[in-house]
Design a protein around this nucleic acid. Structure first.
Length: 742
RNA sequence: CGCGAGGUAGAGCAGCGGUAGCUCGUCGGGCUCAUAACCCGAAGGUCAGAGGUUCGAACCCUCUCCUCGCAACCA
């Protein structure tokens, strides 16, 4: 464990949180796994006035981005430009205070990653091997496993991918597929030789054994060490550093660190068979290689922004580097990246406090299945609401920390969320602060009362000891990355406050000691002491809760009319934080109760979203094509059935997006005899402003149906092409509205 | 027998050789300044299952079952 004792030897802290992959929104599981614990730790360190930089950023390379682009019918660049700012804002709204949120598409990152590769390659730390890979001649590209489909050799599913069959779950390699087909062109791929650089992890087995299994056997989490042991014992293999793809960081075109000039040798000069040549222009760095270097480029950018030197953070031995990640990321941060760092001459991480996973209402979280709570959704539903506010961000932070999967997988339930808020934040913490304030205003005239040492009793002394003890405990727990326990300790201190006040019952003292409207001197002193200590405790709670619930701490500072400097950790444990005679504000409720209806609404939303997702589930372009082409002819009907359908031509006169619905547009359609409201699920395909004035064909005698609370009176006919794109069915030339279609 | 982590009251977790504990929830009683807390009391567990070591096991060993993760072109 990193004890409090050796913290003074640390010159600076560099804290990283796993780079979110910019192919979609991130959910609360991600938040609980890496970002929230990292943020708590950083806020604590900053309160300690230690030198600390907290870096993160979007990971924007890899195959999944272009695949997501295909799904959304756009470009890879558009995908990352869409998700990067949303994710960044989501973090901000939830109080995750990165010192920099960078992105791997930034030129500075490209340079940094290329330099890194260059150094390793020049030092002979990389190997070059040739291998045969599937190649699509039509599109002139080598195919990543995900881009190849074929028949699964295990279950005969026709839509198995090159890396895995999603039907039977078998792990595959492209060679195992029967009749492989490129998803890019639909053609059969050919085999072609290609050259790749590898990181020979096998050369570093000894180092890893010593470093992880011996040095960090006891101070890293058991699951982390166990996972590493599993990998090392399994035999480390060289890992490809490059790949044939046009989305990513190009290899640095240099020989012996000098730019490659025209006419330079195609392959390597003598003794430099690893050198990159002009032939390698189509290769990029593998995303696993470039992504963690993003921590370094982010640090550089932070230094530029703040006029600091970034180098000590990556080279000085007294820097403490801590990576916060989820358990899926252990191997990259404990084995692969450290090897890279060691070869490049950087410092190694001090700890990698990986969390397990968080389930949701009894099932794994999964964005693709719609079974998740996205940060973006939570913010919209709870924070940016009339009865929401920053406090609701803190509520999520509280519950996620309270159920943090530090030692094993844990589970998020809306009922648990409600209970944690209502019984702990509202009833214990919020109530203590509130009753202290109310009583202080009632019995002490809204001012901090004096403390009379002559009548100090055991209860007072005990409370003071409890405060000081809590500070030490919280500190030790935070240093040991036990955030769940640390938070519990803070709430427990509030619990002790409630008990103390109950035992002292100043409201009863006021009643008992008041004779003919005058409070006795002893009574006054007793009340003063009690409320004085309760107020000092409130100030201490503010300092202790600050790393966990920063918005609440800020609110408390306002109520106590103190500057944020009071939040510095060295003030924790002091019982003279609020000056005697200082007048304080009226109490303001810190948290609100969450009602059953709100929880039920969230549960309904979750259940309906999983249904919707299944309906609109799309995969690659190829898959859509296959599905559409295979759509069978419907069952035969008689003419009378057809005649029942009343089809008319109408003109769209107004269109707007339906709030809180991804796919719905609310349209007003002029049918000649009337103008109707029709809700149509076409928002993903058309912008409202683009379709106003268009003529369409409408089913006018369809029974009305409510969608998202809006009654839809009819249905617009659309044709769907093989790529899943929608087209209006309308008359060749503009005709009168209300015309019948037969 | 691929590897790793985990399976303890309704929920979430701690305990890792001395006979089961914490928080929330539930039920009964007291008190009341408060978005009500606090106090007293109660119900609720064959510590996944089986076997073994031991005077004694939730804790050590063996096997089985279940959950999650990883198994290298996947971030």
């Amino acid at each position: 464990m990193d004890t409090v004792d050796n913290k003074n030897k640390i010159g600076r802290y560099l804290i990283t949180a796993a780079l979110p992959y910019a192919n979609g929104l991130k959910h609360i599981g991600h938040l609980a796994g890496a970002y929230l614990p990292a943020d708590i730790y950083v806020r604590y360190l900053k309160a300690q006035k230690r030198e600390v930089v907290f870096v993160c950023g979007s990971d924007e390379h890899g195959t999944a981005i272009p695949i997501q682009a295909m799904k959304e019918g756009t470009t890879a660049q558009a995908i990352i430009d869409k998700y990067h700012p949303i994710i960044e804002q989501n973090f901000k709204d939830l109080g995750i205070a990165f010192d920099i949120y960078h992105r791997t598409s930034a030129p500075l990152h490209h340079e940094t990653a290329q330099e890194f590769f260059q150094v390793l390659n020049d030092n002979g730390d990389l190997e070059v091997k040739e291998s045969e890979q599937y190649y699509d001649e039509a599109t002139d590209t080598f195919l990543a496993d995900r881009y190849i489909k074929g028949t699964c050799p295990v279950c005969a599913n026709d839509n198995a991918y090159g890396d895995q069959c999603e039907k039977c779950g078998s792990t595959l390699s492209p060679d195992m597929l029967i009749n492989p087909v490129s998803t890019l062109s639909g053609n059969a791929p050919i085999k072609k030789a290609t050259k790749h650089w590898y990181l020979p992890l096998n050369r570093h087995e000894e180092f890893l054994r010593d470093w992880i299994l011996k040095e960090h056997k006891d101070d890293w989490r058991t699951s982390v060490v166990g996972q590493c042991k599993s990998w090392i014992d399994g035999g480390l293999q060289p890992r490809a550093v490059t790949r044939d793809l046009d989305w990513g960081i190009r290899l640095p075109l240099t020989v012996n660190s000098k730019p490659l000039t025209e006419g330079a040798p195609l392959l390597a000069v003598e003794g430099q068979r690893n050198a990159v040549s002009k032939d390698d222009a189509g290769k990029v760095l593998y995303v696993w290689f470039d992504a963690p270097i993003g921590y370094i480029s982010a640090t550089k950018q932070w230094a530029l922004n703040n006029d600091k030197d970034w180098k000590p953070y990556w080279y000085a031995p007294d820097t403490k580097l801590v990576h916060f990640v989820g358990k899926d990321n252990i191997v990259f941060h404990c084995i692969i990246f450290p090897v890279m760092l060691k070869l490049h001459g950087n410092i190694l991480p001090t700890n990698v406090p990986a969390n397990e996973f968080m389930n949701l209402e009894g099932d794994k979280m999964s964005t693709s299945r719609g079974w998740s709570i996205e940060m973006d959704d939570y913010i919209k539903e709870w924070v940016k609401k009339e009865n929401g506010g920053d406090g609701m961000a803190d509520v999520l932070r509280y519950y996620l920390t309270q159920i943090a999967p530090e030692t094993k997988d844990s589970e998020f339930t809306w009922k648990g969320f409600q209970d944690a808020n209502n019984s702990e934040l509202v009833n214990i913490f919020g109530n203590f602060v509130n009753r202290t304030y109310v009583l202080m205003h009632k019995l002490c005239g809204g001012k901090v009362p004096a403390f009379h040492n002559d009548i100090i009793d055991d209860a007072d002394k005990q409370l003071i000891l409890d405060i000081k003890a809590s500070v030490v405990k919280v500190e030790n727990l935070l240093e040991g990355y036990k955030f769940r326990d640390a938070l519990f300790e803070v709430i427990d201190l509030a619990r002790k406050g409630n008990k103390y006040m109950q035992d002292k019952e100043p409201w009863m003292v006021a009643k008992r000691q008041t004779v003919e409207g005058v409070l006795s001197a002893e009574g006054k002193k007793s009340i003063d002491n009690c409320l004085h200590l309760c107020l000092q405790l409130t100030a201490n709670l503010t300092i202790l809760i600050n790393p966990f619930l920063p918005f609440t701490a800020a609110k408390l500072c306002k109520m106590m009319k103190v500057v944020e400097r009071m939040l510095e950790w060295e003030n924790a444990g002091r019982i003279d934080l609020l000056k005697v005679g200082y007048s304080l504000r009226e109490p303001q409720l810190l948290f609100r109760k969450i009602e059953n209806e709100e929880i039920e609404a969230q549960l309904d939303k979750l259940k309906s979203s999983i249904v919707n997702r299944q309906q609109i589930k799309v995969d690659t372009v190829e898959e859509i094509k296959t599905q559409k082409e295979l759509e069978p002819v419907g069952a035969e009907i008689v003419f009378d059935d057809f005649a029942k359908i009343d089809l008319r031509v109408g003109t769209i006169v107004a269109a707007e997006k339906v709030p809180k619905a991804d796919k719905l547009l609310q349209l007003s359609v002029d049918l000649g005899f009337e103008t109707r409201t029709i809700v149509s699920g076409i928002a993903l395909h058309f912008a409202p402003e683009d379709i106003i004035g268009k003529q369409v064909t409408v089913v006018v005698n369809l029974a009305p149906r409510k969608m998202r609370g809006i009654e839809s009176n009819g249905m617009i006919l659309m044709a769907e092409d093989t790529e899943g794109k929608l087209h209006f069915i309308n008359p060749e030339n503009a005709i009168n509205n209300g015309a019948s279609v037969r």
